[in-house]
Design a binder for these strands. Structure first.
Lengths: 226, 226
DNA sequence: CACATTACTGACTTGACAGTTATTAACTGA
DNA sequence: TCAGTTAATAACTGTCAAGTCAGTAATGTG
């Protein structure tokens, strides 16, 4: 009665091990569980015992793979964030076409990648906790923020040189574009519940990207269309 | 040797009270201290004993004026945020002129008010902790986000009607404007230290407001300039 | 089947900190 | 000046969660 097995193997008494040794899989499972809980409840309010439970291990096991709660958090960011960025980089490398179409494409990629619940959560989590983890903040800037901005800056610079875009400051505008998209993405996921006014994801992206691109494009090019 | 007085009255043994009763001033002093510490260290990592010390009282006194640590945090937001918003409202009410100049004026106001260290800290703090305080989030949206957006929306709507602005979605763009400014303001104060690339406050404001206004203004008006 | 190895457990220790309370000292005013 | 009132203190309690460790069960090896 008091013996509860979680899964299907619940009456194979003889050859059923009480647990399995899977040192390869544990780290990933723990990281996934931690990301979910941290992003739902915040870092400080999440107990390691909960993380362990969700990952299907005991608390001690968590400490077998991660030095401390802080280290666990840093590992999450290192893993998932850089992963997302690499993906983006690859696609930019392959693209050919006008600066506007490339920029629009990159914006779409950022946006659609943020429709992934997990990534949106992570982005929000990181920005919330950044102030509490100076080491992490340094890493995050060096490995994520600056490379992203440079990527977008480069597109902008090319567009400015060939006259497609107005002569804005590419670094500043690059960062503005990234931040605006990320911010809206996390709003759409988390703050919806408190806001009486809902926009669909498509509406938001169309509105924001139009506003930004209209601001960027030169009068010359826009005159062509009219 | 071991008797330390904090202030000037440090050898007036006879008529020097060990403390004063100042029930009028305590709440404000405690709120100020708490805002400073919360925004420096985050809510969870700040101890009430530190807050008390910084406010020049004992921990017990804090509980004389605030029910709990959570209540203290909510009181901070209720006080400072609504205060800032009222100020903004008044100025909009008085303005006359084109929609563009009014919008630019409002953007300037948001921006300059965020150059105030305390307000920038508060803004960052609120957005970080919002997920952990559903009650507060509801309040913040009802009393701050929605009214702000409505204020800006109204300006945009007028500008669209009289042909100054392109027919964007005013609510969506209104929120985008607010969020972009706030986000940049808090970047300028807190994330500077991690970023190799610095922009001056003026540069940022000029760049961002130009980008947004260029995006808003109709081709017709811009064509006039060329 | 021994026997060594190591992944894993869960009860325990420890420290920290939110919140309480018994007590004291400052003020008030008759 | 001496009650009565209340602002303020500081030592205390209870709880909760991070981190530890001695032991146990799974697995690999000869």
């Amino acid at each position: 009665m008091d013996k509860l097995s979680t899964e299907l193997d619940h009456n194979a008494d003889d050859t059923a091990p009480r647990w399995q040794r899977r040192p390869e899989d544990r780290p990933t499972e723990i990281l996934d569980a931690a990301l979910l809980l941290f992003s739902e409840q915040g870092f400080a309010r999440t107990k390691l015992e909960e993380v362990a439970k969700k990952a299907g291990v005991s608390k001690g096991t968590v400490y077998l793979y991660f030095e401390s709660k802080d280290a666990l958090f840093q590992a999450i960011v290192r893993k998932y964030v850089t992963e997302a960025l690499l993906q983006l980089r690859e696609i930019v490398r392959q693209h050919t076409g006008t600066s506007e179409s490339l920029l629009r494409h990159v914006m779409e990629l950022i946006w659609t990648s943020m429709r992934n619940e997990g990534k949106a959560r992570l982005s929000r989590l990181v920005h919330s906790e950044l102030a509490n983890f100076p080491d992490l903040a340094r890493f995050y800037f060096a490995e994520v923020v600056i490379p992203s901005r440079e990527m977008v800056s480069e597109i902008l610079t090319r567009g400015i040189q060939n006259g497609e875009f107005a002569p804005v400051n590419p670094d500043l505008v690059g960062r503005t574009i990234c931040v605006t998209l990320l911010q809206w993405a996390s709003n759409q996921r988390y703050l919806k519940q408190f806001d009486s006014m809902h926009f669909s994801d498509d509406e938001v992206f169309a509105g924001v990207s139009d506003l930004l691109l209209r601001g960027l494009k030169t009068g010359a090019v826009r005159a062509q269309r009219d």
